[in-house]
Amino acid sequence: MIIGLEEYLALGALLFSLGFYIALSKKNAVGVLMGVELMLNAVNLTLIAFSRFSTSDITLSTQVFVIFIIAVAAAEVAVGLALILVVYRNRQTINVDRTTLLKG
């Protein structure tokens, strides 16, 4: 069995769905962020796999694109964790089930 594009794509899909489950189901806000990070990683892995196995030469532009995704993900985590700290300071919890200020 030769390891080709399909194996990497299946692995990326598995990682993405695990991250999706974590982001939707975790009670702790930091856990939700972890799920989002896993999903971003899965997308990056899929992009790099496509660039490696494509029919045209897109390796360089894909790698630059992935670097931009990583930079935006880092900014997102910094702001997300600051938001978690603010929620904690106001409500003494980071449980996403208990932040129900907007619940009707």
Binding site: L14, Y21, L24, K26, K27, T93, V96
Partner: peptide, 25 residues
């Protein structure tokens, strides 16, 4: 966040999330 809970359990969205996860996968 020292006074927040350290546990990492699931919310009530656990089962729908698992269903959508299996669909995506």
């Amino acid at each position: 966040t020292p006074r927040a809970e350290r546990n990492n359990t699931e919310t009530s969205l656990k089962l729908p999330a698992a269903a959508v996860m299996v669909l995506i996968l």
